[in-house]
Nucleic acid binder design. Structure first.
Length: 402
RNA sequence: GGACAGGUGCCCGAGCGGCUAAAGGGGAUGGGCUGUAAACCCAUUGUCGUAAGACUACGUAGGUUCGAAUCCUACCCUGUCCA
């Protein structure tokens, strides 16, 4: 193995959970290099939800590494599977999507993924799996199903758990891994990327390729990113996520809220900093955790918004939270000049949802007017132009008398 | 097709005729502590009303009752088992 390939292997292994198998990857890289051939790196994506967050970017970043080494990203939109809909599983309300919705979602997804991937057509190929799945006949499907056994299906832990618990498993659910595996055959993938939750499905692709006389794809799994709460996986429904379209201030603030212990994980999976540097940064004897976290926040924000925006977000954060000062700019709230009850003013400026909430906030000492803590929600306030209203640490409004 | 079990607030979950705007937990929010945090502590967590209070809420629609989340009827939905 050349030192060149060894270097690549090292890079590609970073932040992965498993590679099936490392030896095959080394060999495939070597062969491709010798033949001057682009490897085809497959990633399936679920077009049921258009928004992507940092959790999705872990695998996308891995894809980008392959692209940077000259290989081709093959993104597969699971439009066929999404169209059928999957009524079982945890998410019982998963809706059936129309082709238009799927296209729209896929489009949005690309715009966001494009912040990480190289979108040069020479490095990116996008396919829909309806291209080949829609034409399968029942006989083909049965042949496909015949390559798998029930016992092997039941090895998959999500099935295993549900089966032992007596939870229902729809027969069609057995078909999903097969369809995804068939995708691999159709695009002749060399490598398939995916989160650890996709391990089984992706390994099925290996089997199907073998059956179809193709060299089996190498499967690389990436970790599931832990959400901001440090407990569950990052997901939109849990609300513990950082969306790639979040504005810089928000993105930075969210990252600053993670616990120190999570920093190493985020540094490794979400930045390209060298491992040695990460070790320095996450050693509290060498680097103050706050400093490290600021750097983490800036680095991540910079990926999506540029470093100027990242610096600005960090400065703003420091001003508001560390120094307790006012933000650079805040929403303005147009008001009349006539006296108004404080609680009504708060709702009017949308700092709180309801009058009841306004009362609560004031009672708890979370409301201030021009820096003066308010004590009575029913106080009459005579609006003055430029007056500053604050609720909690992060909600501000500047009054504009009309 | 049949037999059970169940549908409660953002989520989980207790309640099973009045004392229930509904225990407990989670989450969220506010305050304290801090490094910005996390952990921890305290508080708040239906709407409207200055307040007294009023209104809305326990799958849906009716009914019984002075009074229903709690009882009855029908319907819808979910799960398990039998066929």
């Amino acid at each position: 193995m050349s030192t060149h390939v060894m270097e690549q292997l090292k890079q590609l292994s970073r932040g992965t959970v498993e590679i099936f198998t490392q030896a095959e990857l080394a060999q495939r890289l070597t062969e491709a290099a010798q033949a001057g051939r682009q490897m085809r790196i497959k990633l399936g994506l679920d077009p049921t939800s258009p928004d992507i967050h940092l959790g999705h970017t872990v695998v996308l970043r891995k894809m980008r590494q392959f692209q940077d080494l000259g290989h081709k990203a093959v993104l597969i939109i699971g439009d066929y599977t999404a169209r059928i809909g999957d009524p079982t599983g945890q998410n019982t309300t998963r809706p059936m999507l129309t082709p238009e919705q799927i296209e729209r979602n896929a489009q949005t997804y690309f715009e966001q993924a494009g912040k990480i991937l190289d979108t040069d057509p020479a490095r990116l190929e996008v396919r829909h799996n309806s291209e080949w799945l829609a034409d399968l006949r029942l006989a083909d499907t049965i042949r496909l199903a015949a390559t798998m056994t029930v016992a092997r299906m039941l090895e998959r832990d999500t099935f295993d758990i549900r089966y032992k618990k007596g939870d229902p498993i729809g027969v069609h659910e057995f078909l999903y891994p097969l369809m995804q595996g068939y995708d691999s055959v159709m695009v002749r993938s060399d490598v398939e990327l995916g989160g650890t939750d996709q391990t089984f499905n992706n390994l099925v692709g290996r089997d199907l390729q073998r059956v179809n006389n193709q060299p089996p794809q190498i499967v690389i799994t990436t970790p599931i990113l832990v959400g901001l709460d440090g407990k569950d996986k990052m997901s939109k429904s849990k609300g513990n996520y950082v969306g790639v379209t979040d504005d810089p201030a928000n993105m930075f603030g969210k990252i600053m809220s993670i616990s120190d212990a999570m920093m190493e994980n985020y540094f490794t999976l979400l930045t390209s900093l060298p491992v040695e540097q990460i070790a320095e940064l996450t050693n509290p004897n060498r680097t103050h955790p706050k400093q490290a976290k600021v750097l983490l926040g800036k680095t991540i924000v910079a990926q999506f918004h540029g470093s100027a925006a990242a610096d600005a977000a960090a400065a703003e954060f420091d001003r508001i939270f560390a120094k307790g000062q006012l933000p650079d700019d805040m929403p303005e709230c147009p008001v009349g000049a006539t006296p108004i009850l404080l609680k009504n003013l708060l709702t009017l400026c949308k700092l709180v949802e309801t009058g009841a909430e306004a009362k609560r906030m004031v009672q708890q000492g979370g409301v201030s007017l021009d820096g003066q803590k308010a004590i009575d929600a029913n106080a009459e306030i005579t609006p003055r132009d430029g007056m500053i209203l604050q609720v909690g640490k992060r909600r501000f409004a500047r009054l504009r008398v009309q």
